[in-house]
Design a protein around this nucleic acid. Structure first.
Lengths: 360, 360
DNA sequence: TTGTAGGCGTTATCAT
DNA sequence: ATGATAACGCCTACAA
């Protein structure tokens, strides 16, 4: 450590060079391990660096090279186990490739996402991994491409944007889940999503701003169609974002005369909120209502009842996304990957439909 | 966007200046909103910047100012809901103060922590928030202070390091939890922690490398002492890190003739692993074993049975840590904060002790 | 009010 | 093999 006038200042290459009695460039070469340096000088420089506690300033290095060895990650909600797990996959993979991660949480707000992406770009991250809050509002993602920085999409695809994404075949699993429900005799099923209500009743042609929701739904609809079960607007309930909204949705959906006998929760947060609401309302699963959740987390099998769930390889999704980005960064083509598979894990939350037509 | 020879290059202040027909410094002033600029020129510069799609290079800016408006966060395990929640508190608070967050996950490994802290320092983060894996091995944390970068400790204190930390009075709550167990008649209690086994049987004077564990234990021991219940080595079981280890610990602990009738899980990960292991072993809570968990997450109340838990304000801890750091960064003294309070939430996982002396 | 010039700490190019 | 010097893009005296 060098103290100059009371204020600590980190030693720089110039300091090291001076102390070793060589030119800046020589010291830089010795320290950076590039170019050619005589063994004698190398040792002197390294010793000097050691004595001064020299550490390279990565910011300055990035300025020169134009590479920051940092990747930006923009997710909707780090409190959601899905993203927490994916972020760990990203972190681990990035770290072992020598990158670190700047994390931005958007609370699924497009405006926050826009600002986050801009900021990350301004900070010169080498590339980005984003789970876009909306596939409709993506100009800021195009900017990433215009900046020639690699972008990888997480969990959600965006039509018209040729950024690679790690695909998980979730539809096959939600179809299997729906088949299970149908086998048990359910005919009135509701799919609960946090997505904002697009306005107007849902129909097959209703455009969805999230491919992951669209995928889940397509599997469900396919199963229904295959059995000739009518698909109506009651199939989808939007706006289940946050415990309060989930509770409200639950009360509303379950109150009708033709209330569904089974619910598919689009993610773990919704399932959790639902479970709490149902407990408070005295609705018993699966006696009064059957439940399937998309995602499978450690708590899923210890809740009451253990939940039948669609398990997707979330950590691997994160790891694969990071791996794809790292390859892109090193100039390679994005690897062609077979879609990761999701599978239905059957536990105890699905039973026969309730006799009475109203749950509440 | 400016295309130069096929390779996109971001517009710089120089480009903007040239286009606006002014000097670099003038353009910089107009864009940075400092110094004095005539309205006429300001408009021209802003227009030019707009046309060129100019965005400041934050890296270069940081180089000049010596401030990166970035804080580094080093946590043990982002998959643990505790840290996920705390990180959100940190993120939200940091973001609204204009900072963003670089996240490093250490898997509670001191070596990874050391490297992470170094890297962050090299990247010139303005300050750090760290939950140290060990309070014994902290030379890298001293480096932070030598670099005159503010450091705030999360969840764990380190004796001899005068970094502020956000205190939570957890001992009072674990004491209350233990009192509850004693009231119900429990005498043989085991506290399960992920901490590495210090070697040799645990005793009151066994040094612990984690203040959060020490705090939890002190509350438990205080309750035991107050009732004159003997405190022996069986009180603490170390090494419950990861589901496998938790399972092994559970089997080992519960097998003895004098097996405990109640377990206190040091965190949510442990409780989760334990719940799974117990279900597999056919051990019913609270019939065969009573359980208290430290931390209270959304799933805690929907598991079977709903868990009696010590709730600590985790999001607030993260937010307060970030707030403290931001103040420090702006030159203010670290705010003097009253310890945050944790409280016991009584649910259904505590019952009377089992009659037979062996659980398994 | 505006312009000139130098510095931040590195990497990279060019001589020597 | 080594040294001098110029970028990188921004901020900031200081001068005009």
């Amino acid at each position: 450590m060098t103290e100059v006038g009371g204020r600590a200042r980190r030693a720089t290459v110039a300091d090291v060079a001076r102390r070793a009695g060589v030119a800046k460039a020589t010291a830089a070469r010795a320290l950076g391990g590039y170019g050619a340096v005589s063994e004698d000088v190398r040792e002197r420089v390294v010793a000097a660096a050691e004595e001064l506690g020299y550490r390279p300033n990565e910011l300055a290095r990035s300025m020169g090279t134009g590479r920051s060895r940092t990747i930006g990650v923009v997710v909707g909600d780090i409190e959601n186990d899905y993203f927490a797990l994916a972020v760990r996959g990203i972190s681990d993979t990035a770290a072992s490739a020598g990158y670190d991660v700047v994390l931005v949480n958007t609370s699924e707000d497009v405006e926050a996402e826009r600002k986050g992406v801009r900021l990350l770009l301004d900070k010169q991250v080498d590339g980005l991994i984003v789970s876009p809050a909306s596939s409709a509002d993506v100009d800021h993602l195009r900017e990433v491409e215009q900046d020639e920085r690699p972008l990888v999409l997480l969990d959600r695809r965006v039509p018209g944007l040729d950024a690679p994404s790690v695909d998980v075949d979730i539809a096959t699993a939600t179809r299997a889940a729906t088949d299970l429900l149908l086998d048990r005799g359910h005919r009135r099923i509701t799919y609960l999503t946090a997505l904002d209500d697009p306005g107007g009743p849902w129909g097959r042609s209703t455009p969805l701003v999230s491919s992951s929701v669209a995928d889940r739904l397509s599997g469900i609809v396919a199963a229904l169609d295959a059995r000739g079960v009518p698909v109506g607007p009651a199939l989808v309930r939007f706006g289940a974002r946050g415990d309060e909204a989930v509770r409200a949705a639950a009360e509303e959906v379950l109150r009708g005369r033709d209330a569904p006998t089974a619910v598919v929760a689009s993610d773990g947060r919704i399932a959790l909120g639902l479970l709490q609401a149902l407990a408070d309302l005295g609705v018993k699963v699966p006696r009064d209502l059957s439940l399937v959740m998309v995602d499978d987390f450690p708590w899923t099998r210890v809740v009451d009842p253990p939940l039948t769930a669609v398990r997707q390889p979330t950590y691997e999704v994160g790891a694969a996304a990071a791996d794809t980005l790292v390859r892109l960064l090193s100039g390679a083509a994005p690897p062609r990957r077979a879609p990761l598979v999701a599978q239905l894990v059957v536990r105890s939350s699905v039973g026969a439909p309730r006799r009475r037509r109203a749950v509440l």
